[in-house]
Every structure is written in C-alpha cells, then in structure tokens.
C-alpha cells in the first residue's frame, strides 16, 4: 500500500530490498544481496583510488607549500583538473587503455589528485608566517617545521581536500560499469536488464552512500583537527572561514 503511494520511488525501494525477475525474465536481479555486492565494489574502487591519490598528491602538495615555490604548478594542476570533465576522463581511459578495475581506478586517481594537491598546498601556505618563524626561532629544522607545525595547522584544509576528492570519486565511480566494473552504476546504465525501478533504486543507494561517506569523513575531520585550532574556531565568523576555505583566492 505504501509502495503504491510512493509511485516509482516505492517500486525502487522494493528493488533494493527484494529480489525480482530481470526485464527479460532470464535472471534474478535486485535485493539486498546484489545491492551489497555493487556497494562493496563501489566503495573498494573509490577508497583504493582516493588512497593512491592521497599517497601521491599529499606529500607533493605539502612539500610545494613548504618550500613556497612552484605556485604555478599547483595552480595549473587545479585549473586543469577543474576543466577536464569526469565523464571524459573515465571514457578516455576506457577507449585508450581498455576496460577493467585497474584502468578505471587509474582514471579516478587522476580525478582525485587536483583537489588533494591544491588543498595541501593552500593549507600549508596559509600557515601564519610568524608561527613558522617562531618555530624556526626555537630551533626546529625544515623537516620538523613541515611535519610538526605546518602539517597539523594545515590539517583541516588538507582533510577538506581529501573529502572533496573522495566524494567526487564515489560519484564518478557510478559510470565504472562502462569499464565492466560492476559498481552501483550497473543498474543505472543497464535499465534494459534492471528496469527503471532498479535504476532509481541504485540512484537512491548511490546518493545515500555518498552522503554517508561525506558525513563520516566530516566526523573524522573534526576528530583530527588539533585542539588549538578548535579553540580558535569558536567565534562564529572564524569557524565559517575555516570550515569552508576558498582555495581559489590564493591559487588563482
């Protein structure tokens, strides 16, 4: 009864929880089992790509920010990253390198690098120069300044970059089935098998997974923010500014 009232959404929700015949009636589709398979592939792909991108972009961004040179490089990577559409990037990899988990993962890594790199660079560059001078004054070496002063102070901005990257990777992993990787996008791009209910059901799951990952990451972000910064965040205006840094102004 409730399903009928919800129209297409009721049917879609039923698809998530209950197995049914495929459109052609040849296989069983939907149900929590299959949705879980899709979800785990989706998350595995997304986390792998984000992790690799972080391992590449984070040290590079921190280093570039620390030495304070090559701003041109950081700016260009962020500008190019913005202009290249996610769809084009994925399909480009499929057309030129072929299908499969590795190829689509590599494309997602490229997608995730710019926000992580830019935010690491901006975060480290945004550390108060007087703080760095003070650290130098008490005898810290360059490496110590980078890891023990700049990194903790830049952490909220850095985490924000990784969060942006993770969210956009999860969103883009929806088209991974084009490369034969069965993420939650499978029912979305194969409605001839899964029906419109499967398509809509998957969309709902993708949206919830993305929001869940974003929320979990926000909690993590709060947990790792150094105490000293949290105190500074207390005034309303400042909290606003720190929570939503605008990398654009210092990078362009």
């Amino acid at each position: 009864m409730i399903h009928a009232a919800l129209g297409p959404f009721g049917d879609a929700i039923e698809f998530i929880f209950k197995e049914r015949e495929s459109q052609a009636g040849t296989v069983r589709v939907g149900g929590l089992g299959e949705i879980w398979d899709f979800t785990s592939t989706h998350l595995l792909l997304s986390f792998t790509a984000t992790l690799i991108a972080t391992a590449i972009a984070l040290p590079l961004g921190i280093w570039l920010g620390h030495i304070g040179r090559f701003q041109f490089l950081a700016t260009s990577i962020s500008n190019i990253g913005r202009a290249v559409p996610a769809l084009g990037l994925i399909v480009f990899f499929i057309a030129f390198l072929g299908v499969g988990f590795t190829n689509v993962c590599a494309a997602l890594v490229l997608l995730a690098i710019p926000p992580i790199l830019t935010n690491a660079y901006v975060g480290v560059r945004g550390v108060d120069p007087e703080t760095v001078d003070a650290a130098r004054g008490v005898g810290l070496t360059g490496t110590e300044i980078a890891t023990r002063v700049e990194l903790p102070l830049a952490l909220p901005t850095i985490m924000n970059g990784i969060r942006i990257a993770l969210v956009s990777v999860i969103a883009t992993a929806t088209i991974a089935p084009l490369a034969n990787v069965d993420t939650l996008g499978r029912p979305i791009i194969s409605p001839n098998v899964y029906g419109t209910a499967g398509q809509l059901g998957s969309c709902i799951v993708v949206a919830l997974v993305t929001l869940g990952a974003d929320g979990a990451f926000a909690a993590l972000q709060r947990a790792v923010t150094p105490k000293g910064l949290k105190v500074g965040q207390r005034p309303k205006a400042r909290r606003f500014a720190l929570k939503f840094p605008i990398p654009t102004r210092s990078t362009t």
Partner: peptide
C-alpha cells in the same frame, strides 16, 4: 554532495 547522475534520475 549528491552525485549528479542520481540527482538527475
């Protein structure tokens, strides 16, 4: 945050 494909559909 909602992926655009899901949003459209």
């Amino acid at each position: 945050t909602i992926p655009s494909i899901a949003f459209y559909l």
